[in-house]
Design a binder for these strands. Structure first.
Lengths: 152, 152
DNA sequence: CTCATTGCAAACGATTTGCAGAGAT
DNA sequence: ATCTCTGCAAATCGTTTGCAATGAG
């Protein structure tokens, strides 16, 4: 979709940061993991990809990497805090680097994803916390609704 | 957990209303459908049940009703506007009569479901609509987060 | 050498679908 | 009689798991 900017500044998480983190935690920095992280770091903007999409892109370089390896690696990377996954309505979850802090709106009709600032729900978050003793955690699930084109 | 105002008037949807609606739309009021609606109407409060739970309860009376029949009936009832389904995080969707209009909070840790008034998100709903040209539709997916016991 | 990680295939849970027969109108 | 609906089994989709082999440290 988009192409990698070559080299001005190191992005928030470079592949090497993650590799170092894996090793620091006693894990092993395998070619598969390295390739997965490379895919997530992606181009100029970090990617939001399903496990299947990550697998496809990884397989372009390492054809034998299995989908299950991607799921297991994502789990490991998530435990280390490098990756988060987000549920966008019905379809599969999408994975992305933990660096970017924003919320997501997903159109129930066309599937379009809109990002919005993390702070958007702070106010009602507080209100709900007091009134209902419940702390909403709006990053793990997208808010669903209708985008402009699809909304009546 | 809030309680429905008790009984002055007949509840919004009785089994017979639904049966009449099915027939009015050219559908057939089968024993399976009747039993399904009876389960959803439930006791004093209307129920929020998974397809599997509905099936179990229906099978207590009609042992041969298949899970797929429940799914298909729910779909039909939903098209007629009698039923809605709600996604509460990871597990299966839950079905309920369309009468009750409220939002849901689901604890990511223990799965507890809290209901909250429909109006709670009206204000940010408007704000998001203007700022991001997106109309949130917060009834189809629960808001996830942490309940008091589970929240750190 | 050891133990984390992998590939593969098979299991899984939730939901959907194809089909021939049953049953509501 | 018609045509919707049903039961059953099998298919599908996203994700997880068991296991023996690989390979990172």
């Amino acid at each position: 979709v988009e192409r990698a900017r070559s080299s001005a500044q190191p992005p928030a998480h470079r592949v090497d940061d993650v590799v170092a983190g894996i090793r620091a935690a006693g894990g092993r920095a395998t070619p598969a993991r390295r390739a997965i992280v490379e895919v997530l770091v992606g181009g100029p903007h970090h990617q939001h990809l399903t496990a299947e999409e990550v697998t496809e892109r990884v397989q372009a370089v390492l054809p034998d990497v299995a989908l299950s390896t991607v799921y297991r690696s994502m789990e490991a990377l998530e435990e280390l805090g490098f990756v988060e996954h987000l549920h966008i309505g019905h379809g599969p979850a999408v994975y992305h680097l933990a660096a970017e802090q924003h919320l997501h709106l997903v159109c129930e009709s066309c599937g379009a994803v809109t990002e919005l600032p993390q702070s958007t729900l702070d106010a009602i978050g507080e209100e709900i916390r007091h009134r209902h003793r419940f702390r909403i955690e709006p990053r793990h699930f997208a808010l669903s609704g209708l985008c402009e084109e699809c909304g009546e």
